[in-house]
């Protein structure tokens, strides 16, 4: 089985794009399978909650 880096070179890309929508759109233009994530900071960016969630979720 080829490792994931080789897959990157030789297999069709399947991309999870987290953030800038344009990146996903340009991949779509190139007929790449991509899912766009309109990312938002976890816990609204509250560091105490982020730490807690790290352990609980």
């Amino acid at each position: 089985m080829q490792n994931k880096i080789e897959e990157l070179l030789h297999e069709p890309l399947v991309v999870i794009n987290v953030g800038l929508k344009g990146f996903a759109e340009s991949l779509e233009q190139q007929e790449v399978e991509v899912v766009q994530i309109d990312w938002v900071p976890p816990a609204g960016g509250d560091p105490e909650m982020i730490d807690l969630l790290e352990r609980l979720l």
Binding site: V40, P42, A43, G44, D46, L53, L56, L57
Partner: peptide, 8 residues
């Protein structure tokens, strides 16, 4: 509640 906090 974890998901509520996580997703805000």
């Amino acid at each position: 509640i974890r998901k509520v906090v996580q997703t805000n």
